[in-house]
Design a protein around this nucleic acid. Structure first.
Lengths: 143, 143
DNA sequence: ATTAATAATGATAATTATTATCAATAGGGA
DNA sequence: TCCCTATTGATAATAATTATCATTATTAAT
């Protein structure tokens, strides 16, 4: 599993500096590994250790980290983006969105490679995919 | 393939009336079968035959038609919902979003039923899925 | 170290998509 | 016809995101 220093190295190799604010945002994402945070949620957590960080900086940082492929930015449902550490979703897992409690669980799978190959036979070039299942998580499906 | 009268029957069976405005929106969706229109795009088209229809009515109608499962409402990318005739995506097809021209193509497939069964073994209850591929459509992948 | 150039930040204005409000209108029975 | 309720269009309000801009921090050159 990638560590903090690896992400920092990735940033150092880029044109961007690892400022205090960016480190704070990165720390939040690492602390919440496996979760899918909205910008607002990242802001709340970031302010625990850096009370005066602004929402604009959070957006800018998330955007940069996503452009460096440190984060994955995805639209899961209802109108806002969520971010997670990119290596968490590397080859290949998918999301189950619980229609009752809204929780997002992860499912590992490699079935899609085959499907991508079929699509490429039709002339497409596929570079990524996003698969979501909608239903009820184990807790909610009891009711 | 479902015809206009079938959709109308579905509406008649509901608590909602088929008003002129709703018929206009439905006509737009039928005319654009297989496409994924945003509310704004529906408005543009609707105004060709009914120039003073308002955006609020379009949103309301799309919402109602989606709640009756006449339309499917999905978030494909970048922050806005798109709508399509629900029967167009019945059992089972997926979307390829071209990262160059933004076009959305459709792929038929039934591979996922199996995957859903696996997930259900883990305690989830799955009722729907949404699979998107990102890449380049045949036209754009030439460059 | 001092200064000049550049990049990053925070506050906030602007924008975009969507939803809510509300007065005016349109149908559908008594 | 008149009343009742649903629908509509205009527009205000909201939510998420992006843009702007003056201030601050960092870097490079002297």
């Amino acid at each position: 599993m990638m560590q903090k220093r690896d992400y920092k190295a990735k940033l150092d190799a880029s044109q961007y500096k690892l400022t205090g604010q960016r480190a704070t945002v990165l720390d939040v994402m690492i602390k919440n590994r496996g979760q899918h945070l909205s910008a607002e949620e990242v802001l709340q957590q970031a302010r625990l250790t850096r009370p005066n960080i602004g929402i604009a900086t959070v957006y800018r940082t998330l955007e940069k980290l996503a452009s460096l492929e440190i984060l994955y930015k995805g639209m899961f449902d209802s109108g806002k983006y969520r971010y997670e550490l990119a290596d968490e979703r590397e080859h290949h897992h998918h999301h189950v969105v619980c229609m009752n409690c809204g929780s997002i669980s992860e499912i590992k799978d490699d079935l899609l490679c085959e499907l991508e190959k079929n699509i490429e036979k039709q002339g497409f070039r596929i570079v990524d995919h996003d698969l979501k299942f909608f239903g009820y998580c184990p807790a909610c499906s009891k009711f």
